[in-house]
């Protein structure tokens, strides 16, 4: 049994028995050896359920929104991506910092359940150590700049308009509009999503490529400056649409146009599209 797991159970047991929190969210072993779904533990005698292995892929932060009016504090196990997701939710006014005890875990990357290689979202991770925490497990490491994560975007940018269009049409033709990408996304935290407000006319219910593309693009743009690059959308997509390429395109452009910005690294700096500067680039004269 690994040291992080022992420490996780110990910390969770303490927090629950002292009444500091009334539930903890972590991971447990599910039905399959290669999957570790999230665990919700309210009883200190059940902390043995908690595990830490190479398949703890699921983000924990979004589960805070399942019951937005819940009384009581939550102990949340958070890796780098989850910590940024918590900042995202705090900044968007969805959760209160004082209602969460963040137990940071210094993550070294997870494995993909199918390929058993390092998961794509972890290969591109820039902040493996939590950026916000109350307690920390493991040895913190410095954030790494990974410019190579924009490689796929840069390659696609070079292609002709027709080719790009064909590429994205092919991708979105696969979409089954399950909205898993939206459901898992910590930046997609609107109480009512535009995709559900079908009588308003933002998005039709018809299932065809054009509507799928409109859904995908609107969602991408809606989270453009708030995407924390956890890569969960692309991971949960059952048909394998490279959604992170859209998000990374937006992140790349925003960084180039409005300066270096990493969403969710702190909860103070406003997202770039929610503010402006008098000397922004002028292209529309």
């Amino acid at each position: 049994m690994n040291a992080i797991q022992i420490k996780m159970r110990e910390v969770a047991g303490q927090l629950l028995s002292l009444g500091e929190v009334d539930r903890v969210i972590g991971w447990e072993k599910g039905r399959f050896a290669h999957q570790s779904p999230p665990a919700f533990i309210t009883d200190e005698t059940k902390v043995e359920r908690l595990i830490w292995d190479e398949y703890c892929l699921t983000g924990t932060a979004k589960y805070l929104l399942d019951d937005p009016y819940r009384a009581g504090k939550t102990g949340l196990f958070a890796r780098g991506c989850d910590a940024r997701a918590i900042n995202r939710l705090i900044q968007d006014g969805q959760v209160k910092r004082e209602n969460i005890v963040i137990i940071g875990i210094c993550c070294t990357g997870m494995s993909d359940s199918v390929s058993r290689q390092m998961a794509a979202k972890c290969c591109d991770c820039t902040h493996p150590t939590p950026v916000v925490y109350d307690l920390m497990i493991g040895e913190p490491v410095k954030p790494v700049a990974k410019p190579e994560r924009f490689k796929a975007v840069a390659e696609l940018e070079q292609k002709a308009a027709q080719e790009k269009s064909e590429y994205w049409t092919r991708q979105f033709a696969k979409c089954i509009r399950c909205y898993a990408c939206r459901n898992i996304c910590p930046a997609c935290n609107c109480r009512e999503c535009f995709a559900d407000q079908y009588r308003v006319g933002w998005l039709g219910k018809q299932h065809h490529t054009a509507e799928n593309q409109v859904f995908g693009l609107t969602r991408a743009y809606h989270i453009a400056d708030r995407c924390i690059e956890c890569g969960e959308c692309a991971r949960v997509c059952p048909v394998g649409i490279p959604l992170m390429e859209l998000n990374r395109k937006l992140i790349k452009d925003i960084q180039q146009l409005f300066g270096d910005y990493h969403a969710g690294v702190d909860s103070e700096t406003a997202p770039p599209l929610g503010r402006y500067s008098l000397d922004d680039m002028e292209e529309f004269m």
């Binding site: 308009a161 027709q162 994205w168 452009d253 599209l273």
Partner: peptide
């Protein structure tokens, strides 16, 4: 940003 996104999708 939008202009660049539209170009990106062709």
């Amino acid at each position: 940003v939008m202009k660049r996104l539209l170009e990106f999708i062709g």
